[in-house]
Write a protein that binds this DNA or RNA. Sequence first.
DNA 1: CTGAAAGCGCTTACAG
DNA 2: CTGAAAGCGCTTACAG
Lengths: 355, 355
Amino acid sequence: MTTTEPGDAKRPARRSSNPTVHDVALEAGVSPMTVSRVLSGGKNVRLEVQERVARAVETLGYHRNENARSLRPGHRSGLVGVTITNIANPYYAEMLRGVEEIASAHGRRILVGNSNEDADLEKQLVADFIGRRVEGLIVVPSSAGDAAHLQPARLGGVPVVLASRAVGGVSADTVLIDDVEGARAATAALLAEGHRRVAYLGQRSVFTGRRRLEGFTLAHEALDLKPDEELIRVGQQDVGSAERAMTELLELADPPTAVFSANNRNTVGAIRAIVARRRAAAGTGADGGIDDIRVAGFDSFDFADIAPVRLSVVDHDAGDLGRRAAAMLFDRLEDGEQPVEPRILELPVTLRDLF
Amino acid sequence: MTTTEPGDAKRPARRSSNPTVHDVALEAGVSPMTVSRVLSGGKNVRLEVQERVARAVETLGYHRNENARSLRPGHRSGLVGVTITNIANPYYAEMLRGVEEIASAHGRRILVGNSNEDADLEKQLVADFIGRRVEGLIVVPSSAGDAAHLQPARLGGVPVVLASRAVGGVSADTVLIDDVEGARAATAALLAEGHRRVAYLGQRSVFTGRRRLEGFTLAHEALDLKPDEELIRVGQQDVGSAERAMTELLELADPPTAVFSANNRNTVGAIRAIVARRRAAAGTGADGGIDDIRVAGFDSFDFADIAPVRLSVVDHDAGDLGRRAAAMLFDRLEDGEQPVEPRILELPVTLRDLF
DNA sequence: CTGAAAGCGCTTACAG
DNA sequence: CTGAAAGCGCTTACAG
């Protein structure tokens, strides 16, 4: 008996990298085949041998290499790729959790990429994910730039579900929220209260922005009204620019008496502007009706219910959006023969008065 | 010339699965070796051949299989595993974006798992990630349960960085925020204003909760004061329970005149309770000093600056936490010979008055 | 500049 | 119940 360690005939000293089936086999005194069998449930292996292998796995800290495993024909990667325009957005974070929940329940893991609203980056992420053999993709598509990379034909058979936004020209499974109806209902509520100068704070270039502006317009048209173009402000990306836009509106000769904001950044910005104006007016005695100004906004947020204005929000469930998108994907993955036509799902929204 | 397709001697009709180097080689009329060379930059390949291969890649929609690639010795997976107690928490979402940013910059992708504050689930995620040969792990450790699975020895050489929380008994690289100092400074500010009955809303069982309570206590001790045990409320997990705890405090015979809340859920809950109380008192004329109540809380949130109370927040940069944790990890990955001792980084916090 | 051989870690038939 | 052979898709020496 020498001081050499077991297995050093074939392998150079102690390998610092991960142990393999071969190492486990050596340790347990069986063939790699038997180790593999034990790892896959132990069918047709003597109990005593199973235990020996289990002990070797434990001793060596062995973890089966999933990448090698998924290489074999018939095996899948167990991976789903998720691309989001901004993971830090609390709404998408909630959505991501919904996706993760369903993916986990189906035994899959998620690869996550932040596309930063950049179509080129999104394209790279998708290509990389396909290279890693994801079984499917869930994409919150960037609104800027070309979207040819999302064309099902370019994806080499990997199913994709678009979440939150559709993409012109790309026909793929899509989960949306009912932007048009939410915006319509919120605006209609303001009009029903008698407001006739209702401002719009939001987007026009983004998919959801267009749809929400459409709802805003529809509510007016239903009453044979036409929104004043002067009161429509688009392009605010963050709370700061939304606050400036709202301040400008409040300084108009004929200011709005109510505002519909198309997302929560715009809502928060609008409220900040109103509060600032109110504070400025507090000394002078002239408040110009600022105390009565009415706000309705798409999306909810922390604290919405104690906001210092009369506020309604169009609420919708981001987690549900994620769960539905993931469910749609697994539906495709598990149906052998899939219906060819892409499905579009519109999730309902709720208008809530928070006063 | 028959109607058979190219390559159908070896392969059964048209393979519906992904094309391989072999398929590309066939299409381009070269060997798989040459395809591989072109894919890796084209060194030592005639320009004309490079173009032929590029065209074949395009035609076939070929994506190099990264899983197969990473199998070769010397190759790495390009993957980092990230486990978070709750991905939907906006703070961790921001952190995740920081991690993704740095990982991307280093050419890595992230596998993300939600541990749901469950040590067993966390353990499974970590094991699965190691099976997928992640090069490293970033973990926001669950506070409940056993943490043996995070012990570096059990990780088979995969470096781990703990983020936001340390774990007793686990010595690994860790990035924290300066909880003690943040809580101390916030509490000290309240005491300096003359408040002598300062409540604490937070945790005691969670790592950060313990540290923040410690800061709260230190601030008192610095002035030879002792916090009143009756004013210390722990265990509120969400806004609702925090609101109830604060309501109870306000109903005490000798209520607090100020409150330090150890996280943003508790801060929001406290403010809700104060607003509710104020509304209830509005009719009666007796407000019991509710209008002067002072709040200082750990973490910021949307709208904090227009909250209807005198509020200070202990602000800290979640994105930075993520970036630092990732940077620490890549530091380990790139240093051939690593210092053995784990490093602990405490990120600074800022106390901001929002009134 | 190009290719045939070998092997990364695993598992599916196929033999015993 | 157990194992030797072959191959998943790729790339690193090694030959030409």
